[in-house]
């Protein structure tokens, strides 16, 4: 399976996402924001970083870049699309996911190994987890506060569209501790924490077993590869 990672000006976790796909056993393909071409990939990842220096609003300019018209078309036809951190912000700005992401309520950038709960496993990016599984992956953002109006929030909760929820600490003031969302179809998922930074022993979060040994993020990438085999 070919999984594309789009590089925007200011992306900085695109290499890590490509590496995560390879470690999960997929073919990683670099895509460029200025192209109108998805190069025949079967799934797309919008990586973390600071596209366009977070000018205008986080993810806003990237959401209108040339390749995004193809991404939006493909997403609406059911292609798996994952947005991590800035990628989540881009998906929200492109209206592929609901709500908005604003500056952390405490006003400062935060970096921590964050415990989250997988709230929904009926998506192509979360099927490799068990319902309610608690995982720890790195979080690093300045504008990760999830907000939505009451009606939208009620719909997200009622329809089971919350994919991940913060546990123990709400690191940025997100409403209902929401860390990640899915769309109704289950092919589009976005989250603020970084699964691609917890895929290889020695480079992940600390665990009780050993320092930096956490690989809780790998199942995100394995999930989409397994979905391709089934379909």
């Amino acid at each position: 399976m070919r999984v594309g990672v789009i590089t925007f000006p200011g992306s900085l976790d695109d290499r890590d996402a490509l590496r995560a796909i390879k470690l999960a056993g997929g073919d990683a393909v670099s895509l460029w924001h200025g192209d109108h071409d998805l190069h025949g990939v079967d799934a797309i990842i919008l990586p973390g970083g600071f596209s366009y220096g977070d000018y205008l609003r986080c993810g806003a300019i990237a959401a209108h870049s040339p390749i995004m018209s193809e991404v939006i078309d493909a997403a609406n036809k059911g292609m798996p699309v994952l947005g991590i951190c800035n990628g989540f912000q881009i998906l929200v700005e492109a209206h592929l996911l609901a709500g908005g992401l604003i500056r952390n309520d405490h006003g400062t950038f935060i970096r921590r190994d964050q415990k989250i709960r997988v709230e929904n496993v009926d998506t192509v990016w979360t099927s490799g987890y068990t319902q309610g599984q608690e995982i720890t992956i790195p979080l690093k953002n300045g504008e990760g506060g999830f907000i939505a109006d009451d009606e939208t929030l009620k719909r997200l909760e009622g329809d089971g569209l919350v994919a991940f929820r913060y546990l123990e600490v709400n690191p940025n003031g997100s409403l209902n501790d929401i860390a990640g969302l899915r769309n109704a179809r289950g092919n589009v998922v976005g989250l603020m924490p970084h699964p691609e930074h917890a895929v290889e022993p020695g480079f992940g979060p600390d665990t009780p077993a050993a320092m930096s040994s956490g690989t809780d993020g790998l199942a995100v990438f394995q999930s989409v590869l397994a979905a391709a085999v089934l379909s």
Binding site: L56, E93, G100
Partner: peptide, 9 residues
């Protein structure tokens, strides 16, 4: 559509 995001602005 571009200069503002009606969810937050």
């Amino acid at each position: 559509d571009v200069l503002s995001n009606d969810v937050i602005e």
